[in-house]
Computed example of a mutant assay.
Amino acid sequence: MAADLAEKTDRYERLLAEALDAATVAVPSGTPLHDAAGEFEEMARSYLEDGRHFREEGDPVNALAAFSYGHAWLDAGARVGLFDVPDEGHLFTQ
């Protein structure tokens, strides 16, 4: 079971990092929605950092939770149109 947790934690960390690299803000700057996109991206990046911290501290359960939660922020932003994201692939829900 520990190997499954380690593999899943690695996979979700990569997923979040790749999704952050692939997403671009889709709304005009100077608008409240642009500010919201920035906040969504900041939350995703913060959870990526938190997950990496938890992993370094030997806490893979909270690392996995942080990576998952960070991806949820980014994916939700993409679904409501804050981000342009790839139409195909594994990074975002369709």
Score class of each variant (00 low, 15 high):
Leu16Ser: 00
Leu33Cys: 02
Ala37Cys: 01
Glu49Gly: 04
Thr31Tyr: 08
Val25Lys: 03
Leu16Met: 03
Phe92Ser: 01
Pro86Gly: 12
Pro60Cys: 09
Thr31Met: 06
Val27Leu: 07
Thr93Arg: 12
Leu64Thr: 05
Leu48Val: 01
Tyr69Val: 11
Met43Glu: 11
Gly30Glu: 12
Leu16Trp: 00
Leu33Met: 13
Ala66Asn: 12
Tyr47Gln: 07
Phe67Met: 08
Phe92Ile: 03
Arg11Met: 13
Gln94Glu: 13
Ala2Trp: 15
Val25Tyr: 04
Gly89His: 08
Glu18Thr: 01
Ala17Cys: 04
Leu64Gly: 02
Glu18Lys: 00
Gly38His: 03
Lys8Pro: 02
Asp21Ala: 12
Pro28Met: 06
Val85Ser: 04
Asp35Trp: 07
Phe40Glu: 02
Ala72Leu: 13
His71Phe: 13
Asp84Thr: 12
Trp73Val: 02
Glu39Tyr: 03
Asp35Tyr: 10
Ala2Gln: 13
Ala37Leu: 02
Ala23Thr: 01
Ser29His: 08
Arg79Glu: 09
Val85Tyr: 09
Ala19Phe: 11
Pro86Asn: 08
Lys8Val: 12
Glu56Phe: 11
Phe54Tyr: 09
Asp10Tyr: 08
Leu5Gln: 10
Gly70Asn: 06
Glu42His: 15
Leu5Thr: 09
Asp50Leu: 14
Ala63Ile: 06
His34Met: 08
Val61Tyr: 11
His34Thr: 01
His71Leu: 13
Asp10Ala: 15
Leu82Asp: 00
Met1Asn: 08
Glu18Ser: 04
Ala36Thr: 07
Ala2Asn: 15
Ser68Leu: 14
Gly58Val: 11
Ser29Met: 12
Ala2Cys: 10
Thr93His: 13
Tyr47Ile: 03
Val25Asp: 02
Glu7Val: 13
Asp10Ile: 11
Ala63Asn: 10
Trp73His: 10
Met1Ser: 12
Ala65Gln: 12
Val85Leu: 09
Ala63Tyr: 07
Glu57Val: 10
Glu56Asp: 15
His71Ala: 06
Ser29Leu: 09
Leu20Met: 01
Gly38Tyr: 01
Gly77Ala: 01
Thr93Asn: 11
Phe92Pro: 08
Leu74Asn: 01
Asn62Met: 13
Phe40Lys: 02
Thr9Tyr: 07
Ser29Ile: 11
Gly77Asp: 05
Phe67Asn: 03
Ser68Cys: 10
Ala26Cys: 02
Ala44Thr: 02
Glu13Asp: 07
Glu49His: 05
Ala2Gly: 14
Phe54Ser: 07
Leu74Phe: 00
Ala3Leu: 15
Trp73Arg: 04
Phe54Cys: 04
Asp87Ser: 14
Val85His: 06
Asp59Cys: 07
Asp75Glu: 05
Leu91Phe: 10
Glu7Ile: 10
Pro32Val: 13
Glu18Asn: 04
Asp75Arg: 05
Pro32Cys: 14
Leu33Ala: 15
Asp50Pro: 09
Leu33Val: 01
Asp35Arg: 07
Ala63Trp: 04
Phe83Arg: 03
Leu48Pro: 03
